[in-house]
Amino acid sequence: MKIGILGGSGKMGQWFGRFLTENGHQVWLWGRNPSKLAPIATRLGVQAATRPDMLGDMDCLIISVPIDTFEDTLRELAPFTKPDQLVFDLCSVKERPVELMHQYLPHCRTLGTHPVFGPGAESLKGYNFILTPTTAPETDLAQGVKTWLEKQGGNVRLISPEEHDRLMSVVLGLAHFIAIVSADTLLGQNLPGISSAGGTTFRLLDTLTKSVLTEDPGLYASLQVNMPKLPKLEADFIKRATEWAELVKNGDKAEFARRMQTLKDNLARTEPGFEKAYQAMYHLNQPR
């Protein structure tokens, strides 16, 4: 299959370029900066599409661009697409991108997709992949994609764009928000050598904050502001954090313990065996 990747110089575009080439597909990378794209294509052993009209010859197109430029990319791409051409997006949000693909590419076979992992993954094995079909034809397409991805070791789930965005508000949005605010708080303490004094729980928090801060600030800012359900979720988090902080401030050990026990009881009902997480945390943070 001939596959064109738009945004091919980005980290995920490069990841899919390598992955698809290794799986026997012919890959072309396209980007707005040909001089930047050429050495990447050479390194990956793929072709560089020097003109957007070349994308019309592809069997499949993968759009791997930031959400902020997604509509402009579709507008530029649309005149060169052909009927029934496969088009997938890799955005971390789904409602708006799927809506835009339907608007600009009604003649194509489009499908919202989200690889829920970063470019550090060596393969699909063990990683989550979400597909968001909205029509019967898209569902048929998604089932075929699901079968292929599962053969590569991926864990694939089909849900609506709306459900996807609700989940990502927690999985990505809230998790990133907590990590960034934690990093801001820790760095504000001005405690040199704090990492060497921390135990297992702190090492886990330290790893989380540092891993998030290695990422592109522009990308993370875009994710935060483009998740419409996230502000309400973060407001709820801040409200609950304030309530817990008040218990600490007031020295209310009994109420703190009561609330924590309630959380434990509720979690035990929904996730039996969750206590294994304590040992899992030690496994993740074994000293090197």
Rank of each mutant, 00 (worst) to 15 (best):
Q189G: 09
A175Y: 02
T201P: 02
D206E: 11
L204E: 08
A183D: 08
G198I: 14
F177G: 01
F177S: 12
I180S: 06
F177M: 04
I194H: 02
G199D: 00
S182Y: 09
S196Y: 12
L187T: 13
A197Y: 13
A175M: 13
L205C: 05
S196P: 04
I180D: 12
T185Q: 04
A179S: 12
Q189H: 14
G193I: 08
L205G: 01
L204Y: 13
S182F: 11
V181I: 15
L174P: 03
D206H: 14
D206P: 07
T185L: 10
S182N: 13
L174Y: 00
G199W: 00
S195P: 02
S182I: 12
T207S: 10
I194C: 00
I178H: 07
D206A: 12
S196H: 12
P192V: 05
P192E: 05
F202M: 03
L191C: 07
G188S: 11
L205Y: 01
R203L: 09
H176I: 03
L205V: 13
T200W: 01
F202V: 05
L205Q: 09
L191S: 05
G199L: 00
L187S: 10
I178C: 09
D184E: 15
T207L: 05
L174C: 00
L204Q: 09
F177C: 02
F202D: 02
G193D: 10
A179M: 01
Q189P: 03
S195M: 01
G188E: 14
I180N: 06
L174Q: 08
A175D: 13
F177A: 09
T201L: 14
L174D: 02
G193W: 14
G198T: 15
G199E: 00
A183T: 00
R203T: 05
G198N: 02
D184Y: 13
T201V: 12
N190F: 05
T200A: 08
S196L: 06
T185G: 09
G188P: 15
L187D: 15
A175V: 06
T207M: 12
A183K: 03
A179K: 07
G188N: 13
L186T: 11
S182T: 15
R203P: 04
A179L: 08
I194Y: 00
L186I: 14
N190P: 01
F202C: 07
Q189A: 14
L204R: 07
L191F: 05
A179V: 08
Q189W: 12
S195L: 01
G188W: 15
G188H: 15
D206G: 07
